[in-house]
Amino acid sequence: MRTRVLRLLRRPWTAAVAAVALVVSVLVAMPASGASAAACRVDHTVDAWAGGYTARVRVTNLGPAVNDWRLTWTYTGDQQVTSAWNATVTQTGASVVAVNTDWNGTVPTGGTAEFGVQGTWRSAAPAPDDFALNGSPCGDG
């Protein structure tokens, strides 16, 4: 009798666990309401000379329209940003963050945002390749 009761108790428990697992897997797979991953391409053109450089950065939005963009990247050389235009650019160590100005924050699907940076380097100034727009990685330009 005891074995039969345990068997009956196991089945509802197993079904409940399976139902909860199914709901959790569906919720994890769904994007948050209104949220879409940014899709982008970055063209990063560098003009370097002994000890300095300028870079033109052009971000093409390949996803849904973006308001208030934030582009991040990491320098693999010893570049140091000294100034920027058409974006507010900050650098901590090798990590760089560029944020739109108040007049160029909206980028429609297929649209672009362009800005530039100027900086210094001592031994190497390779172009970065790990750009991310609002936290989502961009493809190579």
Rank of each mutant, 00 (worst) to 15 (best):
L27D: 09
G110N: 11
A84L: 07
N61V: 02
D78E: 08
D43Y: 04
V59W: 01
W69S: 03
V59E: 03
R122S: 15
N86T: 09
G135S: 06
A55G: 06
W13N: 07
A55Y: 08
V17Q: 01
N134S: 07
E114N: 13
G139M: 05
Q80M: 09
F115D: 04
F131M: 04
T72L: 08
R122M: 06
G119M: 07
L133K: 08
D78Y: 08
G77P: 09
R10Q: 05
T74W: 00
N67W: 04
G116T: 08
V81R: 04
D47L: 06
T3P: 02
M30A: 15
A84D: 05
V28L: 13
G63M: 03
T14F: 08
H44R: 04
N86R: 14
D129C: 01
R70I: 14
D129E: 11
F115W: 15
T88M: 00
T106G: 02
A84C: 03
A48M: 05
A21I: 01
T92Y: 05
L9K: 08
V81Y: 03
A48D: 12
L71C: 09
Y53V: 10
G135N: 10
A50L: 12
S123Q: 14
T72V: 15
A127S: 12
D78Q: 07
V42Q: 12
N67A: 13
P128Y: 02
W69P: 06
D43V: 05
N100C: 11
D68M: 05
R2Q: 09
T45K: 09
T54M: 13
D140M: 11
A87I: 02
A39W: 00
V99W: 00
D43G: 03
N100D: 09
S83G: 12
V59Y: 01
N86A: 15
T106L: 12
C40S: 13
W49L: 08
T60H: 01
R41K: 13
V28R: 07
A94D: 14
P137Y: 05
T90A: 10
P128V: 04
Q118H: 08
R122A: 13
V59F: 01
V107T: 13
D102N: 10
S95H: 14
T72G: 10
G141Q: 09
P128I: 02
G135K: 10
A18P: 00
V59N: 04
A94S: 14
G119R: 02
G135Y: 08
G34D: 05
L71M: 15
N67M: 06
G139V: 10
T88N: 04
S136A: 14
W85R: 12
R10M: 04
A39Y: 02
G63D: 07
A38L: 00
A32L: 13
A37C: 01
